[in-house]
Design a protein around this nucleic acid. Sequence first.
RNA 1: GCCUCCUUAGCUCAGUUGGUUAGAGCGCCGGACUGUUAAUCCGUAGGUCCAAGGUUCAAGUCCUUGAGGGGGCGCCA
Length: 479
Amino acid sequence: MQIKRQTVKSILEDDRTEYTTTVKGWVRTFRNNQFIALNDGSTVQPLQVVVDATKFGENTLKKITPGAAIGATGQIVPSAGRGQRVELIAEHLTIYGASDPSTYPLQPKRHSLEFLRSIAHLRIKTNTFGCVFRLRHAIAFGIHKFFNERGFFYMHTPIITGSDAEGAGEMFRVSTLSPSSPPKTASGEIDWSKDFFGKQTNLTVSGQLEAELGAMGLDRVYTFGPTFRAENSNTTRHLAEFWMIEPEIAFADIQDDMDLAEDLLKFILRYVLDNNKEDLMFLQNRLIQAEKSLPQHQRSEMELIEKLEFVLAEPFERITYTEAFNILRNSKPNKKKKFKYVLDQWGADLQSEHERYLVEKHFKRPVIITDYPASIKAFYMYLNDDGKTVRGMDILFPQLGEIVGGSERETRMDVLLKRMEEYNIPPEELHWYLDIRKYGSCPHAGFGLGFERLVQFITGMSNIRDVIPFPRYPGYAEF
RNA sequence: GCCUCCUUAGCUCAGUUGGUUAGAGCGCCGGACUGUUAAUCCGUAGGUCCAAGGUUCAAGUCCUUGAGGGGGCGCCA
């Protein structure tokens, strides 16, 4: 008789016992020739499958090894041992796929994250990465839920772009021309008009400009898609391929923009605390274990869940660049020249050491900095009446630095054209972007949220390469 | 791109001022085990000490170059 398969999660959440069911998953350990810890990905918790060795042949028992894919049918009963509430007494066992223990790289022990990164195709089977990727899903789902509940429309902006004026970084070229013998023009240069799209194209670095077009008709939209930066960035918080959320709201100013961003971040924290407590608990314990070997002053001040609840409960600090600059200029590390970059001139960009001082030492909470000097921000940000600051805002988080960057957009055609000229962006490149200032322009604002950085913050994973299944970064594009 | 640290068994690591045959835990392999929780117990095997060159009577250990990895910085999300 075929019995419908249940997930481990649904069995563990069910109060009933004394019923027959089927589970399928992967063996984590097989203890005492008797107890299988079975994980099926539905939860970090394993289901204990109890095997009576006398009922099954040696041929079957020998294949129950770490990593093997098996199915088990039997009674769910209250566990006779400690450590789990219920267990399954196996009546039938099916070996779907054996796993050669002499070569299987995952042992029932702690592996380094660096080693697991080198076997990214298998690390998904571990508890740590199971938790990370379940949380990654929950965060993505929560983001869609948040925007849907607020009447936003999910907008798909192009991944291949013919515009090279997005201004957010170095781009990857997309081309079907032969790299060794591309067609040439009469003057000997590569003839891009012969390329697939009839022009030079790249992978997008941002969907913002197209999202602005969307907001001018749909009122409130958001993008959630992959973005690509060909920057040679070697840090724990940069990827060459990452996912970004970019809402854009019409009839809104920078205050509305900040409110939206803070609401979104808090909604997501609430959502994962409500729905992924077990995964968070596991990652929290993992961090506590990892920090035991560190000296006291290097350990986290708060545990993972405590940190998430703290950020959820407290309002983000909102200050202008000028206020931040003054705090930093008068700060101890600045006066004692402990900063690598000592601040003295208004207009200087804040370095990560400054951002971390504000967030981790001075305010001890997320900080939103607004009204940056125009010279260090993008051309599309609304120029304030002072003529030297723009209505941009960055949200800074502990450890990560900038997690959100946004602004109220420049809507005045003359000002926008002047700013583009300063940035050497030819107006004809962005004629469509300028058109929305010509036809029914209105105040609007938006921001970009780095998805992986949010996943990093919530999971506590220190390296961004460990919160995306198959990371891409300079020199690395495996799997 | 810059700075810095690291690379020893399948994994995680130890290896003293350069000195005999390079060690441990886990894993693997063989055996025991019907209430285990990274199970436990007994036994065996397992090494191009990242690579090349150099210094030295002698190099895992010192020097040079290269490769790979970690962390920090810059760029940003």
